[in-house]
Design a protein around this nucleic acid. Structure first.
Lengths: 111, 111
DNA sequence: ATCAATGCATAACATTCTTATGTATATTTG
DNA sequence: CAAATATACATAAGAATGTTATGCATTGAT
């Protein structure tokens, strides 16, 4: 089972920031695989969404990038900048809080 | 504190279906107020998002509507149709599951 | 050799909100 | 009682954020 795609909306940036806050550096493809692995294939990040997101986070100054070559193939490692670490914590707590609120909303009897 | 607006994306339909699955019928404005109340003002549904959503759910056959007049003011009560009840359960479990997955993803050390 | 996986990227399009605006009635408050 | 606030609907322009499709190139597996 894969979640309806609209659910991912709004959470992608935070997912990326969270992974980078736990790992010193990661590259795009690695992020897609890690998310697949951690969620048992329930969440699949598309490359069409991920790469523009990484570029946006970088241009916001939250990520720094190092380009490396593995053989002839390019690989771009992203890391959190200082402000990225800050932002990361904020976004993670906000999302975690939101998840709790939504779970509450979905579980209670609202009558 | 109000959540960043992008977080609501993709959850609105399910929120509406959930409220209607617990309440026989509700009208738009009532839904906005109920969500505010239940979430301690953390989630505020805007009318610009809600009314088109209600119309979409209705045109998908998930909701039925009854128009009533309170004095001279119109009020549109929405209820789940048979297929709406079905869909409602599906969407609610999917979202609850997604929330758990996301919480897990945000809480663990992914290193 | 061929196919799948790795690894990046972008563009057209779709979806789903926000913000702004509009209309009207009912209630509260100074 | 006038004015402000709350109730109650609606839609349109624009922003944000994703999907799908496509492209290119290297590397590993059968």
């Amino acid at each position: 089972m894969i979640y309806s795609s609209e659910l991912i909306k709004g959470t992608l940036k935070t997912i990326v920031l969270k992974l980078l806050s736990d790992n010193n550096r990661m590259y795009g493809y690695e992020i897609t695989q890690k998310v697949k692995e951690l969620t048992g294939d329930k969440i699949q990040i598309t490359e069409g969404a991920l790469y523009p997101t990484l570029h946006a986070l970088e241009s916001d100054g939250l990520l720094t990038v190092e380009t490396e070559f593995i053989g002839k193939r390019v690989r771009k490692y992203y890391s959190l900048s200082i402000s990225g670490k800050q932002k990361s914590q904020e976004k993670i707590s906000e999302l975690a809080d939101f998840m709790n609120t939504m779970k509450y909303l979905l579980d209670i009897k609202t009558a």
